[in-house]
């Protein structure tokens, strides 16, 4: 098929960018969004013109390096799929396809479709970890982990750090990203010790660099790892607990909804609809 590409070209962070129009012919349906750029670039290089710079690496949907807006949608028309796994079969012959970099205040454009996402790492650096020195770990089986909790932790840990959630958000907020990490570590017994310091510190960094969440929910379909809005609820809940306890001068205790549920004689997920185990995300 033949496609017309409207591609954002920008020499560097300081130079204003513009769209340029290119024609690409002979594209087959199995070609991915990134291979579409490969085809365009081969064409440009053969003509001695500068190819379109874009970030990409593993091309199997796990590294989170790639990220482009395709017709205004992060990664492309398909939900929960990174650009490297989106196929051109979504388009028809003669379509015009617009390719832009992530659009977010926290992600300055470096060149063409390449943006600087280091703000995400600064959120992690301010608390998104468990502090265990090398060689200081206890025997792995000394802390059994409930299978449901472990699966839930894995659901949240599946985030690939691509930044599509931020790009999709009209506010440029990073709640889904930060929430996924907070929820991942809070689900595990190993993550309890630093749970509330973690969320306070991560939220402080997040708010200094990103917009605020107003529950649009645009981030969810854009997320290649199918992280759900429940992680934002989790983030807010842990943050509230941390802040309220601090105001009262208390050490925050673990809010264990499962324990409360057991007291009420319910299955634990009935008290916490956000954590229902049946909601198996698509890509995990």
């Amino acid at each position: 098929m033949r496609l017309t590409l409207e591609v954002w070209r920008q020499a560097d962070a300081a130079t204003p960018g513009r769209f340029e129009r290119y024609e690409v012919d002979g594209v087959t349906a199995e070609v991915s969004m990134l291979e579409l750029l490969d085809i365009l670039n081969a064409q440009l290089v053969a003509e001695g013109r500068e190819p379109v710079a874009f970030d990409h690496d593993c091309r199997e949907g796990i590294c989170g390096t790639c990220g482009i807006m395709v017709n205004g949608q992060p990664h492309g028309p398909e939900d929960h799929t990174p650009a490297c796994l989106q196929r051109v079969r979504a388009f028809s012959d003669g379509d015009v396809v617009t390719l832009e970099p992530w659009r977010a205040g926290a992600f300055p454009v470096l060149r063409d479709l390449v943006v600087d996402r280091s703000a995400l790492d600064r959120i992690i650096a301010s608390g998104g970890y468990i502090s265990t020195a090398t060689n200081a770990a206890p025997e792995a089986l000394s802390l059994p982990v409930n299978k449901h909790q472990s699966e839930a932790a894995m659901d949240h840990a599946a985030c690939i750090g691509c930044g599509a959630c931020v790009a999709a958000c009209p506010n440029g907020a990073a709640q889904l990203f930060a929430g996924a990490k907070v929820a991942h570590l809070a689900e595990l017994p190993q993550g309890q010790v630093e749970r509330y310091e973690r969320v306070r510190s991560m939220v402080a960094t997040m708010e200094s660099e990103f917009g605020s969440c107003t529950n649009y929910g645009e981030c969810v379909p854009a997320c290649p790892a199918a992280i759900g809005l429940d992680v934002i609820a989790h983030l807010n809940r842990d943050f509230r607990t941390a802040v309220v306890s601090e105001r009262r001068g208390e050490v925050p205790e673990r809010t264990d909804v499962r324990w409360l549920a057991r007291l009420r004689g319910e299955a634990w997920w009935q008290s916490d609809p956000d954590d229902r185990p049946g909601d198996t995300p698509k890509r995990s």
Binding site: I130, T132, N135, A137, A140, P144, K147, S150, L188
Partner: peptide, 22 residues
């Protein structure tokens, strides 16, 4: 042997059995 201990402590959600073992 230590790698598994360490990675578990760092929060790697290794697959679990129903009894909580890895």
């Amino acid at each position: 042997v230590r790698v598994i201990d360490h990675m578990t402590a760092l929060g790697v959600p290794f697959a679990r059995e129903y009894g909580g073992q890895i």
